[in-house]
């Protein structure tokens, strides 16, 4: 598949930005995202290759601007829907409920 993920040799990117003493995860949600991804693939009958393919199917602008674990989660949503596990509407509804509870 020839897509935006095939970055090798492309021009136009700036310097490699590094972080001193970088933590393994930058946010708690990244830890949860890593763990969710770790278990979900095999439980819903998908594979690492399909997971990578799902990341490669994200829109190019999203691919270049989303953080690494954001891409994982967006790709996972795609797979969850395609495997009939969860719909985006269910996820959106739960997010709205979490906000309500947070405010309440």
């Amino acid at each position: 598949m020839d897509g935006i993920h095939d970055l090798g040799g492309m021009h136009g990117f700036g310097p490699v930005e590094r972080e001193e003493d970088e933590p393994v995860f930058h946010h708690d949600w990244e830890k949860r995202a890593f763990g969710i991804e770790f278990f979900t693939g095999s439980r819903i009958g998908t594979t690492g290759d399909k997971g990578r393919h799902a990341i490669e199917r994200l829109a190019p602008a999203t691919y270049l601007t989303a953080s690494y674990y954001e891409k994982w989660m967006l790709a996972l949503e795609l797979l969850l829907e395609e495997h009939g596990v969860l719909t985006r509407q269910e996820i959106a509804r739960r997010m709205a409920e979490l906000v309500e509870n947070h405010d309440g």
Binding site: W29, A33, M73
Partner: peptide, 8 residues
């Protein structure tokens, strides 16, 4: 994204 991950 934090909310999304929590929901998922």
């Amino acid at each position: 994204i934090a909310l999304r991950v929590k929901a998922i």
